[in-house]
Amino acid sequence: MKIGVLVNEGPYTHEASDSAYNFTKAALEKGHEIYRVFFYHDGVNNATRLTEPPRDDRNIVNRWSELGKQHNLDLVVCIAAAQRRGVMDENEAKRQGKDAHNLAEGFRISGLGQLVEAGIQSDRLVTFGD
């Protein structure tokens, strides 16, 4: 089955990203296809590579990057939500005249249409948020 995942909260403050990650991992282990993980609202903060949690805590951002790498996941960050919150890739930083970019490996920035498209293409869409 093709499953889409929507993550609406950032890392650490809410459990939403943890739940989404554990769900995604379990779905992959069961042989389902994850069509896309879409990060919206504060969920875009799951994609900043500048997080540095304490050693004894999980690294939520790296965990997504690694799972993405292992399973060739499409991890998409909403551009409008990301611009509001200061998450950008190199191209976007250049375009906006910013002096830095912070998008973690394995994520890509794209439009909200990608969320609607995930709803159309997936057999199920599961939302995680607050």
Partner: peptide
Amino acid sequence: DYGGFVDLVA
């Protein structure tokens, strides 16, 4: 567990 969560969604 999370696997059961996935089954419920499916």
